[in-house]
Amino acid sequence: MKLGVFSVLLAQKPLEEALDFIAAQGLEAVELGTGGYPGNAHCNPEELLADRGKLSRFKQAFESRGLMISALSCHGNPLHPQKAIANQFHHDFMQTIELAELLEVPVVNGFSGCPGDSDNALYPNWPVAPWPNDYQELLAWQWEQKVIPYWRETGKAADDKGIRIGLELHGGFSVHTPATLLRLREAVGEVIGANLDPSHMWWQGIDPVQAIHILGRAGAIHHFHAKDTVVDPINVNRHGITDMQPYTAMLGRAWQFRSVGYGHDLKTWADIMSALRLVGYDYVVSIEHEDGLMSIEEGFSKAVGNLQQVLIKEPLGQMWWV
């Protein structure tokens, strides 16, 4: 495995300054935001696709520092019921796929999106209860009329270019659990897999190790994020796991994101790394920093130090003892 970082946390730095900082931390890989919610501060597909000289210099910035690009990430809602919003997210995602092919980056990450409750809706509608039965009917309509058709078409476009799509399992979107990811993968094909982030499993009450086993046995993990979550044992009883308070209300929230090692101990993270190796995932572990109690540099540095202790880097050898 290689240790990397989702570079949007360093968006305030120019690209080459950010890469120098990343390389100095001893990392080997960088995941780049290319549009959607993460923005494109370090990687603007429209500019790079229009200028092959700029594209060449862009690639050289990574190669000269011994860094690889693990994924291009364009997280948005291409199923948004407002067409102008959906079309922009889709445009950015398709440009990202085109750029990934030119950069020889094998994975494009994103969200599945979430439709509304009809063709006339204005806002996404995320059903999470089976009763009243309206929610079941809504869920069936969303998947049959919106989710599966969109990703069949988009998945084919990516597959034709040799690109895999890593969907992040995230609350608020149609694909948010191992089961929903596998449902879409079964309908669309193996081009669809997970950009698995354990932080989103923990707050939903899902054990990330078991999620790795469920998805990994199906060969459905395309990329991996390293971010932690802490669940407050008092506040969760007041607000539940679907706590709608803003992330800034940290003292009263039921759960919040933390840097690696500050929500769960290193034994838990060692179990996660072992599970990834066990199911055959040997690609990049990409740090995502969204810790409201730590500065960018401190939270990132601590995540690096903690993961360096548990990451399994060397290739598998023979069991010499058997």
Rank of each mutant, 00 (worst) to 15 (best):
W203S: 06
K54Q: 15
Q12I: 06
G280E: 02
I212E: 05
Y262H: 14
L79N: 01
E168R: 03
A226R: 05
L67W: 04
L32D: 04
G292L: 14
N77D: 11
L102P: 05
P127C: 03
D134V: 12
P149H: 01
A211H: 03
R277E: 11
I148T: 13
A11K: 15
N235V: 10
M250P: 00
L32W: 03
V304W: 02
E186A: 14
L10M: 11
G172F: 06
V191P: 10
Y123P: 00
G155V: 10
L169R: 08
G216F: 00
S274W: 02
V285G: 00
P38F: 06
Q142N: 08
N44E: 14
V175P: 01
W269N: 07
P81F: 04
M319D: 11
W126M: 08
A158S: 07
K227L: 08
N40R: 12
K302T: 06
E153K: 12
N125L: 09
V188N: 06
I234V: 15
V236W: 07
E101L: 13
R57M: 11
S7A: 13
I241R: 14
A71L: 01
D117C: 08
V231I: 15
W255D: 01
H176Y: 15
G53C: 06
V230H: 10
V128A: 11
A29W: 01
K13T: 01
W151D: 05
G240H: 08
Q60T: 08
